[in-house]
Design a protein around this nucleic acid. Sequence first.
DNA 1: CCCGCTATTATTCAAATGTATAATTCATGG
DNA 2: CCATGAATTATACATTTGAATAATAGCGGG
Lengths: 220, 220
Amino acid sequence: MTERPERRPYRRAGEEKRREDLIAAAMELVSEGGPEAATVRAIAARAGVTAGLIRHYFSSKEDLTNAAYRQVMDQMTAHALRAIETIPAADPVARLAAFIAANFRPPVMTPVSVGVWAGYMHLGRSDPSLHETHEATYLGYRDRLQELIAALPRPADPARDRREAIACNALIDGLWIEGGSLPDSFAEGEVLRIALDGIAAILGITFPASAYHSDQRKTG
Amino acid sequence: MTERPERRPYRRAGEEKRREDLIAAAMELVSEGGPEAATVRAIAARAGVTAGLIRHYFSSKEDLTNAAYRQVMDQMTAHALRAIETIPAADPVARLAAFIAANFRPPVMTPVSVGVWAGYMHLGRSDPSLHETHEATYLGYRDRLQELIAALPRPADPARDRREAIACNALIDGLWIEGGSLPDSFAEGEVLRIALDGIAAILGITFPASAYHSDQRKTG
DNA sequence: CCCGCTATTATTCAAATGTATAATTCATGG
DNA sequence: CCATGAATTATACATTTGAATAATAGCGGG
């Protein structure tokens, strides 16, 4: 009959595990309800811990959410870069196709990714560190795209390549946003097909039929 | 020596004027710092009134911010539609060009418009009324774009028109977002040129040189 | 087996937020 | 010129938020 105040039992987890869990929880919440839904208490609850633990691993809530944003962006670019690693440089069209296709399948085009991006994109205005991450990610992606375009077998023209990289990047972004936020409005593989057709038209090239199958890994 | 508590002097303004001011204030704040910056007190301060007045004109803060979002979207589509009113239906290429160009000049492509769109786009997930507005605006815009594409002088093909409308819409969206959020990264008229070139390539048409001048009104 | 370290929980706090209500002051009509 | 009512301000309140601090329990080393 001792009325001992029951304290929630717990198990210790390594620092990396806890940080991962907290970042993942923040990501999910931001993607679902925007930054205002990612309160310290909601994040902690989703991660299965109590709120106080957040400030044990992060100096502030902003520190945590910035880490979440950065991780989402890094994961997406890393995934796109990994997709072209296996394609030989001798086939620039296939490399470009693989790069494009990587944007339109998980884990890049998912409601979570698009939601996090949307939730945080306007914060770049006020938060300098976040703005830096945003701009660096955007320009880095576009530069990589321009490199792939410049490698195409056609007369060199850097100014044209820049304009076409901007156009292709915008097309990819727009389709990624729409496909990620309104996933039910498109048939399986439809977004990828529209992207490849559009980019082929912009660049004046033709992608092989194999590029239109999103399971690019299997065809390698 | 009467210690009368000084009450802020004020002048009465009509209901429409006050609603306009409050909506404009909410728009600006959302575009600058996202929805979380648009508190009732901040909105009231920006509009030059006190916080209590908001609930005199709107049933809730959500009601006000929804009105702001709706107004931004309606203004943009109305502007784009107004741009093609003066172009005769006999010239579908010019109509399409005018519609496109309207998206890349004020008041459509501005940091405020893009900021409001970005700030609210993820709220569509949680708020049903906002989601309805978002989807209706998006599909309405795309349908109108598809109509303009279908009117082009070429063999009819509805399925192709749909895909190309999706692609052109995505390209416009992506460029609009980038041009609005990173205005210093593009030269004067560069975004419009890239958009017209890209859409011309996607549709297999050519826009006249006059379409590349954003002051479309003067050339009419 | 026990002791100390720290990861984790629990509690507390001040500030901010949306909302509700009371108190006034501006305008308008007679 | 005054009275009536609505527009506007001012104040109060309950809730939530991020943060700070105190308490405790899991876990590894001796």
